[in-house]
Amino acid sequence: MSSREKILSAIRSLTLESKALPDIPNFSNSGDLVERFTQSISGNKGEVLSKGELEEWFSSSGFSKVISRSSQFSELATLSLPEDPHALETLEVAILDGQFGVAENGAIWLEDRQLGLRALPFATEHLVIVLDRNLLEDTMHQGYEKIAAAHSGFGLFLAGPSKTADIEQSLVIGAQGAKSLRVVLI
């Protein structure tokens, strides 16, 4: 007998009382979505800013390796998306469009379509996500409702920069992935 058969028949040999799958109520919160989303992002150690503020940051930083997949900031790109993700090793900034955000925790949904290369939001040194302020959901429940039927090979709820507290519980931003997250609400 294969292990598959062994495992499945071991489970099926048990008499297990049937338990109904509960329905999930549509929980919702009160409060302004933009305000709550902004608070959530800063709690996750990211930053919400305006288009102008981003441009200001950009012009003062002098980045030379920038990939932009957002039509809002196509003029900031200095590189096009490579075929091999290993070419992202020294990438300074990636700019992406987010599909929608979740106010309760700042999570932003991204799929293959936005990413181009799955490694992009992780390998880049700084990450910028452009998000329509009218596309904010209240909680994760509404978020999953929105992507219920969506079919992408890879999808991601991204809520902040790479961070760790593995050394004495001291929070450090910029562990293995992106060192910063800026969300531009338009």
Partner: peptide
């Protein structure tokens, strides 16, 4: 996942969600 991702990180470390929640299909 809406239920579980709301609970997981809050229970684990008190943060509202982990920063990366990747769905591999």
């Amino acid at each position: 996942l809406g239920v579980f991702l709301r609970l997981l990180a809050r229970s684990a470390t008190g943060q509202p969600i982990t920063n990366y929640n990747s769905h591999f299909r």
